[in-house]
Amino acid sequence: MVAMSTTIITITRQALLARKEVWMTLVTLLLLAAALIGIGLYGALSQQSFVMLMMGLELMLNGVMLAAVAFWALSGAGAPEGQLLTIIVMAVMAIEMAMGFALVVAVYRGKQADMTEALSELKQ
């Protein structure tokens, strides 16, 4: 099972060059990315907990990365900047999560709060 899936991966390069896919096209990939971004946006806006909110953001970035790689592979002629963009997005995700959690910890220490509403008094 696993060997099979990994083997599929190894043989895709030639397949990709031959371009025989009907379903894995730029449009379907972008639609998939749009779906992930949409779900992520819903999560980021609707969740009350910080951590769940960050999950929404991460899901959006997931879609962004997929779109970037799709453009790189199918529309950008393999220009290296496409991959670089994805790496940068990954770094941004790591930074977002690390800073987010650090802030949650700091706020939690001070206020015993982990919900967005409880922080409204922070503004004052």
Partner: peptide
């Protein structure tokens, strides 16, 4: 895994 399919 989709990225792997795209040769990334």
């Amino acid at each position: 895994a989709i990225m792997l399919l795209l040769a990334a």
